[in-house]
């Protein structure tokens, strides 16, 4: 079972170094109950790992901790948090900054707030390439046009002159993905990338992410609360509840046979899995869950 996680499903090659290796990570805000508690998670090259949980489960804190995007009040402790072989726990800010982009790039839930409203998309995408001092303006433009084409944006050259508000949410999310790919990252962290989009656009974005993984072999850490999204794109999934990973495994295994009471409850609430004709919708009884699974003390 564990062996299965040891190789890239796309290429089938055995892999040594994980892109992201999180060991016993705990995040707390202002001394209260930790938002994330003792989490272990690895993402290997080319792998798509999903983290599923409800709001307040700590999944976003976990994703933001990787690139040190948490507020000042957050206290991060643990064994290790290594991205591309560099341990970021206690590393100077400069080290973390150098890995933002080339190490891991992030896609946020709301593409409208991911861009500055005051500058054209071309301007903002060119800014991202500031590290590359040897490339000329034209070369940068070529690279940008190439990624915009890769994410399926119609008429990319014209889009460079537009402002974010002129594009729809779905198109802008494509540009956000292009911006992330522009950095040629080893890991793409996607925090609810399709939640703000229509189902038809969601299907297209998920399809795009799957294609990109196959083409460029980028690993993806997918944060979502939607079982359907996880099933559609992930190789492995970790279920988070009250700051802990309560269950982890391949999507096939977990979707076929969820073991943890919380995972079971989550599946029981998924309306698209239920036959019609029920008079009332299922809900999660958090009190009962706490009784069955004492590990979840400290749930909100």
């Amino acid at each position: 079972m564990n062996l299965e996680f040891g190789f890239n499903r796309v290429t089938g090659a055995a892999l040594a170094e994980p892109v992201l290796d999180i060991g016993d990570l705990t995040i707390s805000y202002g001394g209260g109950t930790p938002a994330v508690q003792g989490v272990h998670l690895t993402v290997r090259p080319g792998e798509v790992v999903g983290v599923i949980g409800e709001s307040g489960s700590g999944k976003t804190s976990l994703a933001h901790a990787v690139l040190r995007l948490l507020p000042q009040s957050a206290v991060i402790t643990g064994q290790h948090l290594s991205l591309c072989g560099t341990d970021l726990l206690g590393a100077p800010d400069k080290t973390v900054a150098s890995l933002r982009g080339p190490g891991a790039a992030m896609i946020f839930q709301n593409p409208m707030t991911a861009f500055s409203p005051l500058h054209t998309l071309g301007h903002q995408l060119t800014d991202l390439l500031w590290r590359d001092r040897t490339a000329s303006k034209e070369e940068k433009r070529e690279r940008i046009l190439a990624v915009l084409k890769q994410v399926g944006l119609p008429d990319p050259a014209a889009r460079l002159e537009t402002y974010p508000f002129q594009l729809s949410g779905g198109m802008l999310q494509r540009v956000a993905i292009a911006a992330a790919l522009l950095m040629r990252p080893s890991l793409l962290i996607a925090d609810e990338p399709t939640t703000a989009l229509d189902v038809t656009m969601e299907a297209q974005i998920l399809h795009l992410m799957r294609e990109l993984r196959a083409e460029s072999g980028v690993a993806i850490l997918m944060i979502s609360h939607h079982l359907g999204v996880i099933a559609e794109i992930c190789d492995r999934v970790a279920v988070m509840y009250a700051g802990r990973i309560v269950e982890e495994g391949t999507v096939e295994a977990i979707f076929a046979d969820p073991r943890h009471p919380y995972t079971k409850a989550l599946f029981a609430c998924e309306l698209s899995l239920i036959e019609t004709g029920i008079s009332r919708m299922p809900v999660i009884d958090h009190e009962a869950l706490r009784r069955i699974a004492p590990v979840m003390r400290g749930a909100q």
């Binding site: 099933a231 096939e252 979707f255």
Partner: peptide, 13 residues
């Protein structure tokens, strides 16, 4: 609508 079943992934949107 994405189906919560990894065996029923769609090839095309």
């Amino acid at each position: 609508e994405p189906v919560p079943d990894p065996k029923r992934r769609r090839a095309e949107p």
